[in-house]
C-alpha cells in the first residue's frame, strides 16, 4: 500500500515535469502464453497527448504489452495477464469492465493493413454503426468524412467511397485503418509497427499523421525503426526479453540512455 502511494507520487512528479497527466498505467504487468511467461513485471506509464514508442529486439514482448492495453490478448487461447493496468485510474482487467467498450476507447491499428472486404465507406462506418454513435445517415456521412480527413486520406478517396477498401494501395489502406480507428472517437490509439509494410513516402505520411493525431489522442506505437521512434515519439520504452529495461523522454533515451542494453540496441549492435 505504502509502495503504491510512493509510485503514484513519483509518477505525479514525472507528470508534472512533462506537464501531462497519466492516461494509462501498467503496474507489475506480466503475461503468460500457456506456461511460458512472455512479459515480466512491467511498470509503464502512458501520458496523455503524447506518443509513446515501444522499442526492443524482436520477440521481446512489445506487441504483447501493446495488446494488453486494449485486452486484445483475450482473443488468444491460453493467454493470461497478471498485475494491474489502468485507464484513467480504472483497472481495465476488472471483471466489471466491458471489454467491448474498452476497445472502443482504446483503438488499435495493426502491423499489416487489414481493411475489411467492404467499401471504403463501410470500413469506416463499421465502428460508429456497431457502437450506435450516429443517429442518421447524414451524421454517418459526416463521421466518415471527418475521420478520413483526420487520417489525411479524404482528398485521395472522396470520389470512390463505394469502392472496396482492399483496392487501395498499402499506405492508403493503413491510413484507412487509422481512419477506421479514429471513427469511434477513441482516447488512446495503439499502433503495432504501422509502417512496416509501407514504402518511405507512405511511411512519412503516416508519421506526419501520428504527429497531428497527438493533439487529440494518446498514442502508443511499436516500431523497429529508431529514426521513427526518434521522429514521432516523446517518450520511449525499451524492452528486452520480456522486461522493461528503461523508459524516459525520447531525446534522453537516444542521447544518454542509462542502460547499456539500450545503448547497444539503438546503436544497432544487436536486435
Amino acid at each position: 500500500m505504502n509502495e503504491m502511494t510512493e509510485t503514484a507520487t513519483e509518477a505525479a512528479v514525472n507528470a508534472a515535469a512533462s506537464n501531462r497527466s497519466v492516461k494509462m498505467r501498467g503496474d507489475k504487468v506480466g503475461v503468460f502464453y500457456g506456461e511460458k511467461q512472455a512479459l515480466f513485471d512491467v511498470d509503464l506509464d502512458i501520458y496523455e497527448h503524447e506518443v509513446t514508442a515501444l522499442i526492443g529486439p524482436s520477440g521481446c514482448g512489445k506487441s504483447t504489452f501493446l495488446r494488453c492495453l486494449n485486452r486484445m490478448n483475450d482473443t488468444i487461447d491460453g493467454c493470461r495477464v497478471t498485475g494491474k493496468l489502468t485507464l484513467d485510474s480504472e483497472n481495465i482487467y476488472d471483471p466489471k469492465i466491458d471489454v467491448v467498450e474498452l476497445r472502443a476507447r482504446v483503438g488499435m491499428v495493426f502491423q499489416k493493413p487489414n481493411p475489411f472486404p467492404k467499401s471504403i465507406f463501410e470500413n469506416i462506418a463499421y465502428g460508429p454503426r456497431i457502437h450506435g454513435l450516429v443517429k442518421s445517415k447524414g451524421d454517418l456521412d459526416e463521421v466518415v468524412a471527418i475521420s478520413l480527413q483526420k487520417a489525411g486520406l479524404f482528398e485521395e478517396v472522396k470520389d470512390r467511397l463505394n469502392e472496396p477498401g482492399t483496392g487501395l494501395s498499402g499506405g492508403q489502406q493503413q491510413r484507412l485503418c487509422i481512419a477506421r480507428a479514429i471513427a469511434v472517437s477513441p482516447e488512446v490509439i495503439l499502433m503495432d509497427e504501422p509502417c512496416s509494410a509501407l514504402d518511405p513516402i507512405a511511411t512519412a505520411k503516416v508519421e506526419e499523421l501520428i504527429d497531428e493525431l497527438r493533439e487529440n489522442y494518446t498514442i502508443v506505437i511499436v516500431t523497429h525503426s529508431m529514426q521513427q521512434a526518434a521522429r514521432v515519439s516523446q517518450r520511449t520504452a525499451m524492452f528486452h526479453l520480456g522486461n522493461l529495461v528503461e523508459v524516459d523522454a525520447t531525446d534522453v533515451i537516444f542521447t544518454n540512455p542509462s542502460d547499456p542494453k539500450t545503448q547497444d540496441y539503438i546503436t544497432g549492435r544487436y536486435g
Binding site: 467491448v100 476497445r103 495493426f110 487489414n114 475489411f116 463499421y126 465502428g127 480507428a181
Partner: peptide, 26 residues
C-alpha cells in the same frame, strides 16, 4: 484471415457482431 477478426475486435465489436458483419459476408 485472423486479421479481419482482429480488426473488428480492435474496434470494439463483440464476437457475434464480428461474425455477422465481417466473417460471414467475407
Amino acid at each position: 484471415p485472423q486479421a479481419m477478426r482482429d480488426g473488428s475486435y480492435g474496434l470494439g465489436a463483440t464476437q457475434s457482431e464480428t461474425i455477422k458483419r465481417v466473417i460471414l459476408p467475407a
